[in-house]
Simulated scan of single mutants.
Amino acid sequence: MHDAWIDKGQEVFLQNYKPLPIVIERGEGNYVFDKEGNKYLDFVAGIATNALGYSYEPLKKAMKDQIDKITHCSNLYYNEPSIRAAQKLVELSGLSRVFFCNSGAEANEAALKLGKRYINKFVNGNKTEIITMKNSFHGRTIATVSITGQTKYHEGFAPLFEGITYTEFNDVEALEMVLTEKTAILMIEPIQGEGGIRPAEQSFLKKARALCDALDIVLIFDEVQCGIGRTGTVFAYDQYGVKPDIVTLAKGLGAGYVIGAIIANEKTALGFEPGTHASTFGGNPLSTTAAGVVLDALVHDGLLEHVKTMGAYLEASLLELKKRHPSIVEVRGMGLMMAIEMDSPVGNAIAMALDKGLMLINSGTHIIRFVPPLTIKQTEIDDMIHILDEVLSPQ
């Protein structure tokens, strides 16, 4: 049965993925189980998405209750779960207005459109340039591929959008040179995710904010992967004391349910008016119910403090592992968004770990990243380190 499902998947899906040969059936706590009953400790979390792990009771109850009420009503009308979730995001972010959509790529698209329309309407229509970082990742649509600063994601999709320049991450001098009176938008991941789990330096983000203020540039932080508690604060920018004009969110915001969002300050939000942007499923009462549960868990149920504690423990554990394995070049990251960079490709190590009941994910050819559910326990970190220690030891 197991092999039959894999064969059927290979037959009916477009071949843009290369899944590992297991069929996931269910999850419990911070573990998932395949159709053969094998148990896996999950340090992938749906790629930093299943923030509350699996079968989290408050989430299950809230979603079941909402299913009994209504699952979709469109943005022609208000619905209470979306208003509640938006209010929480506004209060927690220090920004002013929310737009809900369905994914990180959609959130980044919406942020770009809002930023461009604000600039065109209120600042200067001749400001057309968009600046992003080398090694960045912002999504898989043509627009978000265009602003992604990694050529491997561009291959085969030319011509990409024009007017985009990539500059060096964490290089203040390069940033000063590239931002001009023609720049409309600067977009930065506070922690580069697909680019290898590379945190921004505080001085870099502070300089970015100052330059954007001086030159009337819209500053967007892409927190699709690094936001919603993953660093130990609700937003990664809280770690730096730097506030963007727009922040983009997705992944962990829905704890596995499909959602994306942007939050904008009052000034930039004026770029949108009725009819300028939309999303059929954005603000869906089911997905925003999930977002409300996630935000409550972070703020009211002690999850943020748990992430800080477990993040520090994970980092210390990885540093100890590095002492035993010279093949580990560097440990880096923040909170429960950590990585080890190896001196050789990590594909075999990830496959071997899966055979031992541990799910890991790469971030580039030489990097293993660790983005477990925010509910991960100390004993589970110990188990992960034990398996990884075995995998990295000479065979």
Results as ranks from 00 to 15, higher is better:
Pro81Ala: 00
Ser82Lys: 09
Ser82Ile: 03
Ala85Asn: 05
Gln87Pro: 08
Gln87Tyr: 14
Lys88Leu: 14
Lys88Asp: 01
Leu89Glu: 04
Glu91Gln: 12
Glu91Pro: 07
Leu92Gln: 12
Gly94Met: 11
Ser96Ala: 15
Ser96Glu: 11
Arg97Ala: 14
Val98Pro: 02
Asn102Thr: 14
Asn102Ser: 14
Ser103Thr: 10
Gly104Ile: 06
Glu106Asp: 09
Glu106His: 10
Ala107Thr: 10
Asn108Leu: 02
Glu109Ala: 00
Glu109Cys: 04
Ala110Tyr: 08
Ala110Trp: 07
Ala111Tyr: 05
Leu112Ile: 13
Lys116Trp: 11
Arg117Met: 04
Tyr118Thr: 01
Asn120Leu: 11
Phe122Ser: 08
Phe122Leu: 11
Val123Thr: 04
Val123Arg: 01
Asn124Arg: 11
Asn126Met: 07
Lys127Glu: 01
Thr128Met: 13
Thr128Gly: 05
Thr128Lys: 15
Glu129Met: 15
Met133Ser: 04
Met133Gln: 08
Asn135Gln: 15
His138Trp: 06
His138Arg: 06
Gly139Met: 02
Arg140Gly: 11
Arg140Ile: 14
Ile142Cys: 03
Ile142Tyr: 08
Ala143Gly: 03
Ala143Asn: 07
Val145Gly: 00
Ser146His: 01
Gln150Ala: 14
Thr151Leu: 10
Lys152Ser: 12
Lys152Glu: 13
Tyr153Asp: 04
Tyr153Gly: 05
His154Ala: 09
Glu155Asn: 15
Gly156Lys: 07
Phe157Met: 11
Ala158Ile: 11
Pro159His: 08
Glu162Cys: 03
Glu162Ala: 09
Ile164Gly: 00
Thr165Asn: 08
Thr167Asp: 07
Thr167Lys: 07
Asn170Ala: 13
Asp171Asn: 12
Val172Met: 05
Leu175Met: 08
Leu175Asn: 05
Met177Pro: 10
Met177Leu: 15
Thr180Ile: 03
Glu181Cys: 05
Lys182Phe: 00
Thr183Lys: 01
Leu186Thr: 00
Met187Gln: 09
Ile188Lys: 00
Pro190Ile: 03
Pro190Met: 03
Pro190Val: 02
Gly193Glu: 02
Glu194His: 10
Glu194Trp: 09
Glu194Gly: 00
Glu194Phe: 11
Glu194Met: 10
Gly195Pro: 03
Gly196Asn: 06
Arg198Phe: 14
Ala200Cys: 13
Glu201Thr: 06
Gln202Trp: 15
Gln202Pro: 12
Ser203Thr: 12
Phe204Lys: 00
Leu205Ser: 07
Arg209Ile: 05
Ala210Tyr: 13
Leu211Arg: 09
Leu211Ile: 14
Leu211Trp: 09
Asp213Pro: 09
Asp213Arg: 15
Asp213Met: 13
